[in-house]
Simulated assay, not measured.
Amino acid sequence: MEVIYTGLCQTPEMVVNAALQEDVDVIGISILSGAHMTLFPKVMQLMKEKGMEDVLLTGGGIIPEEDMAHLNNMGIGKLFAPGTSTTDIAAYIRN
């Protein structure tokens, strides 16, 4: 699997535009700032606006379990807590 790292402090618009240009299958976002309830929905909204409904949005960070459940119910893929094995994350993406 090829990974394109866009760097720290990317706006939702920057993330979605880069993903669109690179024709990705998955967008993975790491959020440690506590802004997950703002950033994930914004990225998902922009993805829908760009017709990227077939792209998986996933990620992780310091996200309370109840927020993970709420984001999952919104259509965002599985979210991973700190310390999750990259093998587990890659297996989720492959499946």
Rank of each mutant, 00 (worst) to 15 (best):
T11Y: 01
A35Q: 13
F80N: 04
Y92C: 10
A18F: 02
V3F: 15
G60E: 11
F40N: 06
I29R: 03
A69Q: 15
V24W: 01
L32M: 13
P64N: 01
G51A: 09
A90K: 15
K42P: 00
L39H: 10
G51T: 05
V15F: 07
D23H: 12
D88E: 15
A90E: 14
S33N: 09
S33R: 07
I93H: 11
G7E: 07
H36C: 10
E2V: 06
N17G: 00
L57D: 04
I29H: 02
M52Y: 00
Y5L: 13
L39V: 15
I29Q: 07
D67G: 02
C9P: 00
K48W: 05
G83Q: 01
D25C: 01
P12F: 10
T84W: 01
A69M: 11
I76M: 08
L56N: 04
G83C: 00
Q21M: 11
E13H: 07
L46H: 07
T86M: 11
K50R: 13
I89V: 14
D23K: 14
I27W: 00
M68N: 08
L71C: 06
P41L: 07
I31F: 03
L20A: 11
H70V: 09
G59A: 03
A69V: 10
G75P: 03
P64H: 03
I29A: 11
I76W: 03
P64M: 02
F80P: 09
F80R: 06
E65F: 06
L8K: 08
M47L: 04
Y92K: 08
H36S: 13
E53S: 14
Q21N: 13
M14Q: 15
P41D: 05
A18S: 14
E49Q: 15
I31V: 13
G28S: 14
M14K: 15
L46V: 06
L56V: 10
P82R: 09
G77P: 08
M14F: 05
S85Y: 02
V16W: 00
L71K: 09
K50D: 05
A19L: 02
S30P: 08
T84H: 02
M74C: 12
D23C: 08
G59Y: 02
M44K: 14
R94W: 05
I29N: 04
K48M: 09
T86K: 05
H70G: 11
A69N: 12
G28W: 00
I93T: 09
A19R: 03
L8E: 08
Y92I: 06
Y92R: 11
M37Q: 13
N95W: 02
R94I: 04
P12Y: 07
I27P: 04
Y92S: 10
P64Q: 02
I93L: 12
N72P: 02
M52D: 02
Q10T: 07
L8T: 06
N72G: 09
I89Q: 06
S33P: 10
E22Q: 14
T84G: 01
G83H: 01
S33V: 07
F40M: 05
C9H: 14
K48L: 11
L71E: 06
L71A: 08
T84F: 01
N95H: 13
I93G: 12
G75L: 02
M47Q: 03
T84C: 08
V3Y: 14
G34A: 09
